[in-house]
Amino acid sequence: MALQVFHRTRILRSRIHSSWMTFALVFSLLLPVILGIGLYLKSASLLQEYSIWEILFSSKWKPLSGQFGMLPFIISSLWVTMIALLVAGPVCLLSAIHLTQYAKPIVLRIMHPVIDILAGIPSVIYGVWGVLVIVPFTADVIGPIFHKSITGYSILSGGIVLAVMIIPFILNILIEVFRTIPEELTEVTLSLGATRWMVVKHVLIKKAFPGIVSAFSLGLSRAFGETIAVLMVVGNVTHIPTGALQPGYPLPALIANNYGEMLSVPMYDSALMLAAFVLLVIVIMFNIVSRWMIHRLEKNI
């Protein structure tokens, strides 16, 4: 009967849909594993020659003579991300408190699109902005303060550009975190005669502390993996930087800058894939820990 056939094809169609859905889900969840395995396999040939510690803690980067010490790049990465966090962290924290505790709703309505757009602007556009504004600013304003003549392509420039890039991420999470603190808690403290600011200082910050740390560390890991914008303003000189006004050469920039030539030098590609692998592992670990902390915070309140 026609109806029976209809019903059977209907059930069959549903089964096919369900199978595709299950496949898509499993594929999506395996993606980081696939990424990790792929990159690890590619970097295996280098790891057979040297131990991972030798590579990570040696400062000799001379691919042509087979030396792949990544310390200069790791130190550079640490410099730019730290500067980015030092700039973005306080700004975000203050602004998040302002927006959730003091500001009128209209300000929040303005800030939502601002945050969205900041988060949506591509990395390369931040790079152009860095080249146009931040690099000259570092060279012409910051340099002279320290009596140095510099080009402006420096760790400081990279850090400032990165700071602006991670502001929307950190701010978004902080606003969420402060929203999870129940209003009643604030009201109770207010009715004890405290001022709004005392509530913020004594209650809010303490309650939200794990969330604040997580937001910062998520911002940090975001900054750690940022490539193009930093690459455009940081100078890209292979050395271990000792000051913010020197040029640096962070890990992602290393990968991005050398893809063209890496095929001709033995093990060069292994080294770059290892760099990508290290980046992946660090970022995933940071993300897991900080997201877990936020998750716990939301559950406990």
Binding site: L35, G225, E226, T227, A276, L279, F286
Partner: peptide, 9 residues
């Protein structure tokens, strides 16, 4: 967590 993986990777 995957959202946080950098595009260079």
């Amino acid at each position: 967590v995957m959202w946080g993986i950098p595009s260079i990777v």
